[in-house]
Amino acid sequence: METRSFFTAGDGCKIAYRFDGPADKPVLLLSNSIATTLEMWDAQIAGLSRHFRVLRYDMRGHGQSGAPLGAYSLDRLGRDVVELLDGLDIAQVHFCGLSLGGMVGQWLGIHAANRLDRLILCNTSAYLGPGDSFDTMIHSLARSDDMTAMAEMFMTNWFPPAMHAGQPELIQRFRDGVLATLPHGLAGNFAAVRDMDLRRTITLIERPTLVIAGQYDTVTLASHSEQIAAAIPGSRLLVLPAVHLSNVEFPAAFLDAVVTFLQPGS
């Protein structure tokens, strides 16, 4: 088990985090997809830590972080990041978030822009409706502790058939991660996604932004990334031939895109 440290958010929730890389490098904060932990970035850490002090965390409801009962909000998930940076006395970071992490990144770009240098939004959406679909999943999680169906849904949504056939051990690691997620923690995060609508306010984002899309993403469609890139002034769009977890499916191309974008003067 990787070593994590902990801090306590303003509402009392324990948040787990860890650092990798030299302390004298610029800080790059990574924020994970729903139903994963900070370990979803493992394939990027060796490459990223050559250039950055990499900070990762388990979003509330995931991994070793706390999982309060009830609905979460995107505002609360964003403030978890701000409070983490405050607690670590870090004034500003590069931020890279995927899926739910990218939604948090959009919130930060709108509400805490002074804490960001550059922003990378991957396989994400500014709005992911309709709400009824999330209500159905939330109600399902309230009725049963069996996460098997959720795990299979995520595996189908995240990875192409070729990866299921060719990399079964990798798929199983992610499946095990979903199975280990507390149902009420997942439900709380589903509520945050259900209630999110940033389509109008992301036009306020002024930080240099790279948007990474998955050409074959069936959850956060490539068109969603195109809409985000069109709304954020001066942003760049990169479309990888990926499904949803583009950093896992195309680790080398993803790493190259992130490092190139974050280089001074790029």
Rank of each mutant, 00 (worst) to 15 (best):
L237E: 04
W107M: 12
D217E: 07
S125M: 02
L198K: 03
A149H: 07
K25N: 10
E226Q: 12
T37P: 00
L55R: 02
F6V: 02
T220A: 13
L262F: 04
W41Y: 12
P160A: 03
Y57W: 10
F95V: 02
G78Y: 05
Q44H: 10
R50P: 05
V104A: 01
A252S: 05
V259K: 07
H111V: 01
A9K: 02
F95N: 03
A230C: 14
H164R: 14
M103N: 04
A257T: 11
R118Q: 15
V27R: 03
T220S: 12
A222F: 04
L128S: 06
L28E: 02
R56D: 01
D11A: 11
L221F: 08
P183N: 09
R4Y: 14
A231P: 04
M147G: 09
A46S: 14
L116H: 05
I232W: 07
P26H: 09
I212A: 00
P130F: 04
Q44S: 13
W158S: 00
R194C: 07
Y127S: 10
G66E: 04
S140K: 07
F250N: 06
L255D: 14
G234N: 14
I228C: 04
F254P: 02
T220D: 12
M59V: 15
Y57Q: 07
G131E: 05
A253H: 08
V27Q: 02
I90C: 07
L88H: 07
N189I: 05
R236D: 14
V104P: 00
M150I: 15
M147S: 08
R143V: 08
I15L: 14
A230T: 15
L221N: 02
A252L: 10
L77I: 05
H244Y: 09
I15C: 04
S125W: 00
F190L: 15
Y57V: 03
S235A: 12
D42R: 14
I45K: 09
L84H: 12
R4N: 13
G70D: 11
D42S: 14
G101R: 02
T260D: 15
P68Y: 00
L128E: 06
G63W: 01
L186G: 05
P264M: 02
V82Q: 11
L121P: 01
N189K: 13
V54Y: 00
A252E: 15
R76S: 05
A16T: 09
H184S: 09
D117E: 12
M163S: 12
P68V: 00
Q227C: 08
T136V: 13
F154H: 10
L204P: 01
I138R: 09
D20G: 07
G102M: 06
L179S: 10
R56T: 04
G78A: 06
A229Y: 00
S144V: 11
S31A: 15
R236V: 11
V239R: 10
S223Y: 06
D86A: 15
V258F: 11
G102F: 01
